[in-house]
Design a protein around this nucleic acid. Structure first.
Lengths: 253, 253
DNA sequence: TCACGTCATTGATTTCAATCAAGGCAGCGT
DNA sequence: ACGCTGCCTTGATTGAAATCAATGACGTGA
């Protein structure tokens, strides 16, 4: 205790990039007992502190766990599964603002009340913790606050890209853009190359892309007939021609 | 030096809300010499530090000062005037992702490169500073980093609201939503009650709402014919029936 | 095995906003 | 005064996606 690495995590001046996917689950110290990883060393006091913060929870597929307008008491970090985040209009129209998967953080877009609703589209394992506790975490580990600002900035970039999609792209361009993003994400993680398994239904896709179910289906068929993708029964999609997909998606660079 | 207020701004534990509109311009210490206001007291070292950070600049109406894809070297804080932030597709389609006015912060939605372009739609006075300097500012005044996280969170909320607008609202609902927001904002600041002067052209409005110029014009005419608003020549709009406007806008709550 | 509900695909028709087109108005420089 | 340009409005027509409609595939439970 008191060594240089100790100082590091307190000041937040650590050089090595810290991935939130590893940082935040470690806050669920009580549940998963993976205390180390936040930084090189933690003192007993830190461990004791972390042991009382997060709370591991499981949300069954199809169940909501955040409701727009409710007091924003919690933050969430997803360990496994996928959730959809959405906003509804009084007459039932819905806009899905994003899908949150493993490692993703839910609850940034909230002031005193949640600005969105959230529902599990697969069984979701997540770590829940109080906003008040989070404030204490910031005080103790400034690097986390810095990291959250980076996360928020990145989400803003994504959001602006989605505005471009919703405001100015055609149906087929929207589908291609979506597949492009998920293809990139899948390719980034080591494993299979071009085969994707999308966890969401056509309805979710429609609500995400600002279209109807029928138009999503037609756009997928169009891409399939052009030989750009292959569609399987189990929500599986194979990207056969990534370059053409990117071209259709109007990806700038 | 060393008093309680000193401790406050160093630890960022100040209770009173700090408005970025007052905080960040003060970083332009060299230009405006309004050093006090960040917190109750600053030591000589702080003043010297602040005197070398921001740089006051003026951007003439119609001129761009951020280009999407360029290395993101600077942050900006607007002191006066309005800028539009936008993304373009290769074929010229444009989506304006937001308008930044007095006190607003530009540059959060950037990683190593800008994810958007920015152009002044009025003469803009802004304070420019380097991202590298900003990092040092964070180290010295943690309260600013905390405040920036709040700002980013709020922008995420706005962005999600805009996704709902672009993905699911009709033309007239989009116009009404836009006027509703600007009406609220204007009403919040003391002064005139219902009269707005919009700084942007119909074209900008169209690019912001995901419509065409003609459709924006028609929607404005429709609202005018319904007696909800009155439209003046100089981009002036008076909200005559705020409640009906909100109803048309499908504002949830 | 069958009935039922959910989800997806495809076709026919309608509709809302885009496009095409014309004209008005204000500012500006010559 | 004149023409010019940029900006806005309004009308006529077109078009892309929504809506309406029918059908098929799949999983589940009786």
């Amino acid at each position: 205790m008191g060594g240089p690495s100790m100082l590091d995590h307190r000041t937040g001046n650590r050089r090595a990039p810290i991935n939130l996917r590893t940082v935040i689950p470690d806050l669920c110290a009580k549940c998963e007992a993976r205390h180390i990883g936040l930084c090189d060393s933690l003192c007993d006091e830190d461990l004791h502190f972390l042991a009382n913060v997060g709370r591991q929870t499981t949300i069954a597929k199809g169940h909501g766990f955040v409701t727009e307008g409710d007091p924003a008491r919690h933050f969430f970090n997803i360990n496994r599964g996928t959730a959809k985040l959405y906003k509804d209009l009084p007459d039932g129209r819905r806009q899905i603002t994003g899908f949150a998967g493993s490692g993703d953080f839910i609850g940034l877009a909230a002031d005193t009340r949640y600005a969105f609703s959230a529902e599990a589209i697969e069984d979701v394992h997540l770590c829940r913790f109080d906003r008040t506790d989070l404030r204490a975490v910031f005080g103790r580990f400034p690097v986390i606050e810095r990291r959250l600002l980076d996360v928020a900035s990145h989400e803003l970039i994504i959001a602006q890209e989605q505005m471009l999609l919703l405001g100015r792209k055609t149906a087929i361009e929207r589908l291609a853009s979506f597949l492009e993003v998920w293809h990139q994400r899948a390719a980034a993680s080591p494993g299979q190359t071009q085969r994707l398994t999308l966890p969401m239904t056509r309805g979710d896709l429609a609500d995400y892309l600002g279209l109807t179910i029928e138009t999503v289906s037609r756009a997928l068929s169009a891409l399939r007939k052009q030989g750009v993708i292959a569609v399987a029964a189990d929500h599986g999609v194979s990207v056969l021609q990534p370059a053409r997909l990117a071209g259709i998606a109007q990806t700038v660079a």
